[in-house]
């Protein structure tokens, strides 16, 4: 197993205050790692530190054995691609936006893309189903379409590691499944290592091969979904009563929150 990402004793945050403390985890080639945890547990902070936007106050991040702090912005962009929660609807043509993912490969005074860049952009636009709207403006398309364009731009960077910040938020269930199916397919077919922040525990259980559960900025548990998503763990981390069943279709854990209706008894029946 080739190790792609290794996070070592990582602490990070804003100003002088650390949001995450002493985080350790790693991702191997082909892993699909989900970062879960309640609001404010440091999921996004962790992701932003791994992307290089936040400087760690302590600890190290290694990408393919190289320390992130020793790499230039361009070198990082060739290895790590990031899909953020929502990109502003800017006045740029979709295909030109996707092509921007080739920028880390441009020479210092290269102002125009080469044919190869165009070819690569085209291939990934096909793969992500962006082709039908590639001539529209980023501001004209729907949130789901914009997100797929963002994934295409990320793939065009030809990274070894793809990071996504809550790719399913703001999406309806159709688009949630569509984007996660796409990520899973890329993960399988390209052997692309993926780390994503995800709120929906059931989606996390379905798609991720490994989960990293955070509580108050520290790792509570890591492992395969079956091991992490137990009612004990969830009740302790989320402070909510749940029942964990098995999804009858996939045999993955399925989390059912115990609502007021259930505790009152009979209201649902």
């Amino acid at each position: 197993m080739t190790e792609i990402l290794k996070v070592e004793n990582l602490s990070s945050g804003y100003k002088d205050e650390n949001i995450i403390n002493n985080i350790n985890f790693s991702a191997n080639k082909g892993d699909l790692v989900g970062i879960i945890g309640p609001n404010g547990s440091g999921k996004t902070t962790l992701l932003r530190t791994v992307t290089g936007l936040l400087k760690p106050s302590r600890g190290n991040i290694f990408v393919q054995k190289d320390n992130l702090s020793s790499l230039t912005s361009k070198e990082i962009a060739k290895r790590i691609a990031v899909v953020t929660q929502n990109i502003e609807p800017v006045l740029i043509n979709v295909s030109e936006y996707v092509l921007m993912g080739r920028m880390p490969y441009y020479d210092k005074f290269q102002f125009f893309e080469k044919n190869q860049d165009k070819y690569i952009a085209g291939e990934y636009m096909k793969m992500t189903d962006v082709m039908p709207y590639k001539n529209k403006m980023m501001s004209e398309i729907s949130g789901g379409e914009r997100q797929r364009a963002q994934v295409a731009r990320a793939l065009v960077q030809q990274p070894v590691l793809l990071l996504l910040d809550e790719p399913t938020s703001h999406l309806d269930i159709t688009h949630q499944v569509k984007i996660l199916d796409l990520i899973k397919r890329l993960n399988r077919e390209l052997q692309l290592t993926v780390v994503l922040v995800i709120h929906d525990l059931n989606m996390a259980a379905e798609y991720c091969s490994k989960l990293l559960m955070l509580k108050k900025g520290e790792v509570f548990q890591t492992g395969p979904p079956e091991q992490v998503l137990t009612y004990k763990n969830i009740e302790e981390v989320y402070e909510t009563v749940v029942i964990v069943e098995k999804n009858p279709l996939t045999q993955k854990p399925y989390v059912l929150p115990v609502t007021e209706n259930a505790t009152k008894g009979g209201a649902v029946r």
Binding site: S73, E75, V82, V90, M100, M103, Y106, F111
Partner: peptide, 24 residues
Amino acid sequence: SYIFCMDLNAFLIGEEEAAHIGVN
């Protein structure tokens, strides 16, 4: 200024996004 013209194009999609595609 032309040394930075591609970087400025990247800024079009937002400063953080620009950082993600390798702009310092």
